[in-house]
Amino acid sequence: MKSLRKILSSLILLVLVLILIFSHNAVGIFLISFKKIATSFFESCEKSEVFKVIEIENNRLKLELSALREEKIKSSLSQYRKARVYSRYPFNDRARLIIDLGLRDGIKEGMPIVLMPGVILGKVIEVKKNQSEVITLFDPEWRSSVAIGLLRAKALLKGGKEPKLELIPRDIQLKEGDDVLNISPELPMNFSLGSLNNLSEAPHEVWRTADLETNYNPEIIEEVLVVFDFP
């Protein structure tokens, strides 16, 4: 009887293992949607009336923005190719993605990855037959040159969980919310990386520093675009 139970439990486990192996994407999607439902339940409990009004306004703006973006994407489809995100780096020390395009699809090392046309997320650093590894600007190894605001103050973008802008000159007037645009030659010129936030004005320092605000959560990115006609 005991051995029968052992065989049965082993068989059930084998089936579960096989299900997990062959439907890992579905399991992943299920877990993420479960998390979304759980978090939305708790969030909804805390919402105040004022917050709701702001949220409605925010949603309206988001819709407008997405319509504009869709229009933009349609007009430049030949330049980009959609890729789905397989996995994210499972440990905490890096922020990298695996996408479902590889050598067979014409992906090459260094190709820029954008979240939507004009918004840089990262670049391809390793290519295999059907998959590629992407380093994002949330990775501590990320370094690139940027221009901030209308006066185009040059600065260095250092990647990380909270990307930092360093070596910002003191003599150029900047304000929070100024656009941060790429000027590194390995990525498309003037593509957006985010906006300026928390600008430090410490008088004893030669350079200023700031945070880069990105307005999206890199943990929930499921699709990206690969820029094919660059450089």
Partner: peptide
């Protein structure tokens, strides 16, 4: 054998999906 694979798989998915 199966339990170890099962536990490791669960941990892997929970870690990778960042739930």
């Amino acid at each position: 054998f199966f339990w170890i694979v099962f536990i490791v798989l669960i941990c892997f998915f929970l870690q990778e999906t960042k739930i």
